[in-house]
Design a binder for these strands. Structure first.
Lengths: 197, 197, 197, 197
DNA sequence: CATGAATGAGGCTTCATTCAT
DNA sequence: TATGAATGAAGCCTCATTCAT
């Protein structure tokens, strides 16, 4: 590839990253409807017209971020499952990853985006995101089920247990965003205890 | 003869209730920004203009509902504290009330409204709501502290523990709204276990 | 007429007077478009429905007041012409009446209403009011013409001279309304000098 | 290549001028409240939304025009004072400038805007405009005072005299707008006579 | 005669999106 | 690629007017 094309490609990437970062922050803080595209362009230091070069609509930018968030979550689950070790070790990794993530600026925004519901008003898009959320819970539920067989997890409906943990993480991310660093994150043990003996 | 004052009062009350019910549902489902006033009026079977006889703006209706939600939460806390019995009994009442509430249409909407963050964009209003949320957690934290002294609650920072439980309830309410009744609520014991031995 | 009817008649008159007074004040202060009918009803301490018993629309109330104002102006002109005396005496009466009127609350409002232009947007109504204004100037102009023959008035186009005096009175009424009593009214001689030697 | 800054600046200026011209005409003819924004946009041959790129509200456009009108008036006063010559010469310039201005389309609109009172309903804005009006009268009053010392002006309270002249100009502008060119403007001498011997 | 709740058209304003350069 | 001016549909809100009692 000639030098020039690489440079353009570099610029493209930078612009996209700036837009993603700005969109992520604002969508997480205010939701899709309350965020306006001009504000995103301003935060990203990019002109309005350029934004529309990369995303055909506000909704598309939002969906790309929501899908990215779900993808990150899926990758974590995959990583967790590939880990050699007991169910307890895996859950521990999961909770740790959450607690680490929620302390980073972008990380918390991804968690918040995931927790948002019915933002687009587009039934198809909303349903797809919903499915991914359900799958994430189900993945964790399967792990819990395994943990119950191994005697590491508490008894009870695995889906309910998994949902309880994920609920707690979402609530915590939400409080963290609301209160800022003044909201001390709970110890790993507090969260782990929801699922393990 | 002028229409009797009582009649007018009766009419007013009915209209207000219809507006509250409609607003609660829609704000919970879609948030303040994504809900439009026409939709609320339609859902309430009331003309658009009439809404403005009772609320000076969409935001005011939202805030009145958010405050009502916080007030209901405060009342539950009060009731819980007045209960004669161990800390475990009190927490049990709390979780039960949550699980009952979240199964009712209005109940779940109130929980969702409470979990929404920075909806108004009005700094003063947002801050006031935030304060009430913090207080709710602190109230529960005090109870946990007592429970720790009595040997009923698990060890750990009381505020973090309280936040974990409330986080879980909010996440659950959120999932319930997303998935509908297909999302089975967790057993009381799963939630109680977050705080108690 | 039976007693009761008289009483009703009395009430009618009182209501109408309250409405006129309130309408006059508000229309003068803010103009037709910026004044709202609810405010008039409130100022008059009369219910909205009752206002519509007496006036079929906001415009009708405005026009009734504007016409009343023109009528008062016409009556003054008539009175002035019937006065036995020189043109100077007549003009003196005119200026005196103006300076007296503008010091009374209702009086100033009438002068202001007269000076408003194209308030209704209704071509027919606006034209009628305009005609009356032109007539008022022409009436005064005829007097000036007479004064010129008698050697009491300054030379120049009588219509222009009359317009200059009336212009001055309108501007003065306007300043008086703007500045309140802090705006000292000019001496009679200052105004008379516009027309007389 | 991005559109050159100069080009944008040029476009901005043109649009602003079109909006000012349209706003001036309509506000003068019908007042702030009775003029609607759609009409202004149409008259300016500009889209509705574009108006809001340049003015944050209808009121802001109005105020910018009102302030511009006052500024023009102030400039005339300044010019008048800098003139070498007697007080009579200065007043002559003033009256001439008025009579010239009132014959031009924009000129008359500026005079009318100045004469409008309490249009915005915004106490702060209204008060600021009022202050400027008072100052304009006071400036003229100082000149009259000088003229009295020089024996050129008639006796009497200088502020009252100045107010009488300005009142007359406002009333004349108002009649001219009402009646159109059918309303012959008074000779310069008629107006000058208000202040000078 | 009297009340004020109720209606909905119309006004002001915002903002996602387009487009000329 | 990059800019931001321009558009207009849609949202919030106001208010003249009607109407049941």
């Amino acid at each position: 590839m000639p030098k020039q094309k690489e440079q353009f490609e570099e610029m493209r990437l930078q612009t996209i990253q700036k837009l993603q970062k700005a969109g992520l922050k604002l969508f997480a803080q205010k939701g899709l409807a309350a965020t306006n595209i001009k504000e995103i362009a301003k935060e990203a230091q990019v002109s309005l017209g350029l934004l529309y070069h990369y995303y055909s609509s506000k909704e598309e930018l939002y969906l790309s971020l929501a899908n990215e968030a779900m993808e990150k979550s899926r990758l974590l689950a995959e990583q967790m499952n590939q880990l050699e070790g007991s169910v307890g070790d895996k859950l521990s990794l999961f909770v740790e990853a959450f607690l680490n993530g929620v302390q980073k600026e972008d990380g918390i925004y991804y968690f918040i985006i995931i927790s948002q519901l019915f933002e687009t008003g587009n039934p198809e898009a909303d349903r797809q995101l919903l499915d991914k959320k359900r799958q994430a819970i189900e993945n964790l539920a399967r792990l819990v089920e395994q943990g119950q067989k191994d005697g590491e997890c508490v008894e009870g409906d695995p889906f309910q247990l998994a949902a309880a943990l994920i609920s707690a993480t979402q609530g915590i991310a939400s409080f963290r965003l609301m209160f800022g660093e003044g909201f001390g994150l709970p110890d790993k043990s507090i969260l782990l205890r929801i699922l393990t003996k």
